[in-house]
């Protein structure tokens, strides 16, 4: 086992050959790297990653992938109150109720969902991490004050909050982002604070103090890095719900009012009175929302499993 080990120096060659020579010289496996390796072996993670990747690529390269310009209503004359043209050679998925190409609308919709989902989650994460971090780092009265504030935020139903924000700011993308973010702030704050408190009780934090480390160093370079795991997982899962919420708020008419911007949630609204005659108008955007949310959820759950210390050997 070690250089000083009497057994090793005396160990016969035949035994050493069977054992290998103890500790390898290679680089150790850090927790992040170990988590990544577990992730890359998990089929759910791979499927989730593929879905998310596909979604992101579609969103970014929408102009290249889409066969037409979005929301131009070029074929409005083909749409009748009782019928929307289905798939045809020029339009693989047919048209939408406004006479635009349905495939083009779906592809540009990905863009909208991604931007709003990512930006709102980022705002929520930032705000929540700030509040939770302050509460977790200082503790005591600061903690009590911040957490009561968070409790108040939590007690307002998120949809109501979103509706009021949208009502104040008017129906535009920024309103949706802030509305969604506002609902996420308390979730992230509580999570990071709880995680930090749990880490602060650990022996290694006590050990850091006993070594004479400054409080700031202990919090920033020991407590915080070890508390981030659950927050990262939550952020991934929140992306899934954010995408659904974007759709939900648009469905309620609180999203962008500019019809030139394709958005999955609004596509649902426009399709609902044609559910009987042209179900694909509702099914396809619905499927896009579901699959994307599923992708983020799968990835997030796999990430949770990979980061969870209990699944570590």
């Amino acid at each position: 086992m070690t250089a000083l080990d009497p057994a090793q120096s005396a160990r016969p060659a035949s035994l050493s050959a069977l054992m290998g020579d103890g500790m390898s010289d290679e680089q150790g496996t850090s927790l992040w790297r170990g988590a990544f390796e577990r992730l890359s072996r998990n089929p759910a993670a791979i499927i989730g990653t593929l879905i998310v990747l596909a979604f992101v690529l579609v969103a970014i390269f929408a102009p290249l992938l889409a066969p037409y310009e979005p929301a131009k209503s070029q074929w409005i004359d083909q749409v009748t109150p009782s019928d929307v043209p289905g798939p045809s050679p020029g339009h693989p998925l047919g048209l939408d109720p406004f006479g635009s190409d349905l495939l083009t609308q779906l592809i540009y919709g990905a863009r909208q969902s991604l931007i709003i989902g990512v930006v709102s989650t980022a705002i929520g994460l930032l705000g929540g991490a700030l509040l939770g971090g302050v509460a977790g780092a200082f503790g005591g009265r600061v903690d009590t004050f911040v957490m009561r504030l968070v409790d108040i935020m939590l007690s307002i139903p998120s949809l109501l909050l979103a509706v009021s924000v949208a009502a104040v700011m008017g129906p535009r993308p920024g309103a949706i982002m802030i509305a969604i973010a506002a609902a996420q702030v308390p979730v992230f704050a509580r999570l990071l604070r709880g995680s930090m408190l749990a880490q602060r009780g650990q022996d290694y934090v006590l050990a850091s103090f006993s070594l004479g480390l400054r409080r700031r160093t202990v919090v920033m370079s020991h407590v915080v890095p070890n508390s981030l795991g659950p927050v990262i997982v939550q952020a991934t899962l929140t992306l899934a719900t954010a995408i659904i919420e974007v759709a939900a708020l648009s469905y309620l008419g609180l999203g962008a009012s500019d019809p030139a911007i394709a958005e999955w949630g609004r596509m649902l609204v426009k399709a609902q009175d044609r559910l009987q005659t042209d179900p694909q108008l509702m099914l396809l955007p619905g499927l896009c929302i579901a699959v994307t949310a599923l992708g983020f959820t799968l990835f997030g759950e796999a990430l949770r499993e990979a980061l969870d210390p209990k699944s570590r050997r």
Binding site: G28, S30, L31, W32, Q202, D203, Y204, L206, A207, S208, S210, L211, G212, L213, R214, T217, H222, P225, N226, P309
Partner: peptide, 27 residues
């Protein structure tokens, strides 16, 4: 200084041995 009961809990899991041992010297 102090030696703890549970060596796994008393070592920051994200620090390599080198970083664990150099930290007190640096401080």
């Amino acid at each position: 200084q102090m030696v703890f009961q549970d060596p796994l809990a008393s070592l920051n899991p994200r620090q390599s041995v080198q970083s664990l041992l150099i930290e007190p010297l640096r401080v």
